[in-house]
């Protein structure tokens, strides 16, 4: 990959970060805008979670990742500490993959 594209992507991503922080305060005075802006991270994190978990090569796929996420979900439900959530989720998936290989 050429440095040109790397520099362009870097510049674009930084510009987006900066622009978000520079949005005039008046734009936030409207309750509707504040309400939408507040849930945008929730929407994007949800989308990242489901696409990373249930999509494989652009197709719906329910596999070991789904089990790992479910285990992580239970850990969240039980109010486990952050690291426990991450490690149990990853370990469940890794374990299933290992059994798959072993079997």
């Amino acid at each position: 990959m050429s440095w040109t594209w790397i520099l362009l992507a870097t510049a674009a991503c930084f510009a987006l970060k900066l622009a978000g922080l520079l949005v005039p305060e008046s734009a936030l005075d409207r309750p509707a805008v504040a309400r939408v802006a507040g849930v945008v991270p929730v929407a994007l994190l949800a989308a990242l979670i489901t696409t990373q978990t249930f999509v494989h090569q652009q197709q719906l796929a329910v596999d070991e990742r789904a089990v790992g996420l479910a285990v992580a979900g239970v850990a969240v439900w039980l109010r486990a500490p952050f690291l426990v959530v991450v490690v149990t989720g990853a370990a469940a998936t890794a374990g299933l993959r290992w059994l798959d290989l072993a079997g």
Partner: peptide, 16 residues
Amino acid sequence: VLGLDVASSAAFLALV
């Protein structure tokens, strides 16, 4: 092999 692809989803879930 280490399930690291799921670690990220699990982290996002805990964060949200």
